[in-house]
Amino acid sequence: MQGRLSAWLVKHGLVHSSLGFDYQGIETLQIKPEDWHSIAVILYVYGYNYLRSQCAYDVVPGGLLASVYHLTRIAYDIDQPEEVCIKVFAPRSNPRIPSVFWVWKSADFQERESYDMLGIIYDNHPRLKRILMPESWIGWPLRKDYIAPNFYEIQDAH
């Protein structure tokens, strides 16, 4: 099922995939990493001027990593703000996604946390370094295949 924003992106020739709607009726779109920065700028110009949150997760052990952006379109002439969820998937072997820090400044600490916990590299982020773990920490603690130091019990991730 295609939503309003997806139809608008198709009309303007912007490549994406519609992932439907979540339980609150918010449209969810998938954007390729190489298209994400230009589409982020277009969405900002279109009116999505507020990055409500950014997070990331490990889809499956050994599989893709996902960076999720919740955007809101806030304007004085509308009663109900419009929201959209954008998912950008990156391969585990080289998880690189363009940073949207220069579009929405609120992405700063959120992208740093995703880098720190999952190892997603946000290209062109001005201060991409660990924010929660010490700089000497090895590995990415929220990856499903992560084995904590001094913890050798084999666990089934499912």
Rank of each mutant, 00 (worst) to 15 (best):
S93F: 15
G119C: 07
N124H: 06
Y115C: 03
Q110R: 02
E111K: 07
V103I: 15
L128R: 12
R96I: 15
S114V: 04
H125K: 10
M117Y: 05
I97H: 08
M133T: 13
Q110D: 01
L132Q: 04
P126I: 01
R130P: 10
V103A: 09
S106C: 03
E111N: 03
N94R: 13
K105W: 09
V84H: 06
V84G: 02
R127Y: 08
I97P: 11
R130N: 05
Q110P: 02
H125W: 02
S106D: 07
D108V: 06
G119F: 01
R96F: 08
P134M: 11
I120R: 01
H125I: 01
I131H: 13
R92S: 14
P91I: 11
V100P: 12
V103W: 10
K87C: 12
R127S: 14
F89W: 14
V84N: 05
N94E: 15
D108C: 10
M133F: 01
E113D: 10
P134A: 09
S106M: 09
S99W: 00
I121N: 12
N124I: 04
I121K: 01
Y122D: 00
E111D: 01
S106K: 05
R127D: 15
W102N: 15
F89I: 00
N124M: 09
S106R: 12
A107Y: 05
I121E: 13
S114F: 07
K105I: 10
Y115S: 11
W102I: 11
P91F: 14
S114Y: 11
K129H: 08
F109C: 05
D108S: 01
P95C: 12
Y115E: 12
I131C: 01
L118A: 12
P134G: 06
E111T: 04
D108P: 00
K87A: 11
E83T: 12
M133W: 05
I97R: 04
I86T: 10
C85H: 12
S114K: 00
A107T: 05
V84E: 00
S93P: 13
M133P: 01
A107V: 06
A107F: 02
E113M: 02
